[in-house]
């Protein structure tokens, strides 16, 4: 369960990316965050993932108030989220498998268990055969699927994605949407920031529409 109350994020310089936003997302729900460029979608996703900290208001995820977190507790909270970034943030100095292994190493899993789980995640997104490939050798769609594998390998309770299909063709975008739908079906809460109309129509009415930081 994600509950935001009067959530505001003001950056140094005074720019308010998110203004007085309140909403509730139930556990296991799939919700889209839509809006034009600069509407505050990315900031809202980052606030939920505790990558950014709110300026005011409260944000409670799974009963934990993220606004009141101590700095040292933030990494542990982030591990409950699977985060997919717009630019994927893959590491190009290592293989696809090693990219997926990173969250498991952070969690302290033994190498053997970590490899088993990373391979299962790669299999889920259809990339097991390419586990040894460097991400640079993957297509845009494959890179996005690799980013999803990395996001879900730690079995997060909430999957957050920021414009996951922004640079993909419609077929690849459809595959990604199917993957999110699959995770949603097994009970994972999915929050996706997107301006892709086909997604928005499909998920209606679970859409949070933002405009200049305000919820419409």
């Amino acid at each position: 369960m994600i509950v935001a109350s009067n959530l505001t994020k003001r950056y140094p310089g005074g720019y308010e990316a998110v203004r007085d936003v309140s909403f509730e997302i139930s556990a296991g729900q799939m919700v889209l965050v839509s809006g034009h460029s600069g509407a505050g979608k990315t900031t809202l996703v980052k606030l939920i993932a505790s990558i950014e900290r709110p300026t005011s208001g409260s944000l409670v995820v799974n009963g934990q108030n993220l606004s009141a977190l101590r700095r040292s507790a933030i990494p542990y909270v982030r591990r409950h989220f699977g985060m997919i970034f717009q630019d994927q943030k893959l590491l190009f100095d290592r293989s696809a498998l090693d990219n997926v292994l990173l969250p498991l190493q952070i969690a302290g899993l033994s190498r053997r268990d970590a490899i088993r789980r990373a391979q299962a995640a790669l299999d889920k997104v259809g990339l097991l055969a390419r586990e040894k490939a460097n991400p640079i050798a993957l297509s845009g769609g494959e890179q996005q699927r690799l980013a999803i594998a990395r996001a879900v390998v730690n079995r997060p309770t909430v999957l957050l994605a920021d414009e996951p299909t922004a640079n993909l063709d419609s077929d690849s975008a459809g595959d990604i949407l199917e993957l999110f739908a699959d995770f949603h079906r097994v009970g994972v809460t999915v929050v996706v920031a997107t301006h892709d109309q086909s997604w928005i129509e499909r998920c209606h009415p679970n859409v949070l529409r933002l405009d200049h930081g305000r919820l419409l």
Binding site: P75, Y76, R78, R79, M83, L91, I106
Partner: peptide, 16 residues
Amino acid sequence: AAEIEVARMIGATDAF
């Protein structure tokens, strides 16, 4: 830098 940035975003502690 890239690895550190990603690791932090996905839950790495300072110690890690």
